[in-house]
C-alpha cells in the first residue's frame, strides 16, 4: 500500500499552522527571518535528506562568472506533508528562490519558496489545507 499521510497528519499540520516550521533540529537565529531575498539560478543538486533538505543553486554573478548558493529547506517529513518529493527539483532546472538570507552575508539562507520558470510553485510557503480526498497539490497555493 502506498504511503498515506492521512487525516491525522493533515490535522496535525493544521494545528501546527500554515507556516508550519516545527523545527527541532537547530535554531533559526542564523537567518534573517524578517527579510526575504530572491534569486534565479540553475539547480545543481536537490538533496532530499534529513535533518534538512538542501537546494544547491548555481547563479551567474552580475559581473560575470558563477557562484553557488545553498538553501536549507525542511525535513523530509514536513516536505512530504507539502507533497514535495525527491523529484520536485531536478539538476539543470532553472528556479527562482525566495529565502531568508544568512545574517552573516554568506551565499545562502532558509528557503521560503521555489518556483519554476513557468511560474509553477515547486515548494510553497505553507502546508496543505485539508482537502476532501486528500488531493492537496504539490506545493501549489490557491489561485
Amino acid at each position: 500500500m502506498a504511503r498515506t499521510l492521512g487525516t491525522a497528519a493533515i490535522l496535525a499540520a493544521a494545528m501546527i499552522g500554515s507556516a508550519g516550521v516545527a523545527q527541532a533540529h537547530h535554531s533559526f537565529a542564523m537567518f534573517d527571518l524578517a527579510h526575504t531575498a530572491t534569486l534565479t539560478g540553475t539547480v545543481k543538486e536537490w538533496q532530499w535528506t534529513n535533518p534538512h533538505s538542501w537546494l544547491e543553486v548555481v547563479v551567474t554573478k552580475p559581473g560575470g562568472g558563477m557562484t553557488q548558493y545553498s538553501f536549507e529547506s525542511r525535513s523530509i517529513y514536513l516536505l512530504m506533508r507539502m507533497r514535495v518529493n525527491r523529484f520536485t527539483l531536478m539538476p539543470g532546472q532553472v528556479v527562482t528562490v525566495t529565502y531568508n538570507p544568512l545574517r552573516d552575508g554568506d551565499n545562502g539562507g532558509s528557503l521560503v519558496t521555489a518556483k519554476a520558470q513557468d511560474g509553477t510553485v515547486l515548494i510553497g510557503r505553507g502546508l496543505p489545507r485539508p482537502v476532501p480526498g486528500g488531493g492537496a497539490a504539490a506545493g501549489t497555493p490557491p489561485p
Binding site: M1, R3, T4, L5, G6, T7, A8, A9, A12, N50, P51, S75, I76, Y77, M80
Partner: peptide, 10 residues
C-alpha cells in the same frame, strides 16, 4: 494517526 502510516527514516 492512521494505522497504515509508515514512519519515515530519519
Amino acid at each position: 494517526g492512521d494505522a497504515d502510516y509508515e514512519m519515515l527514516e530519519d
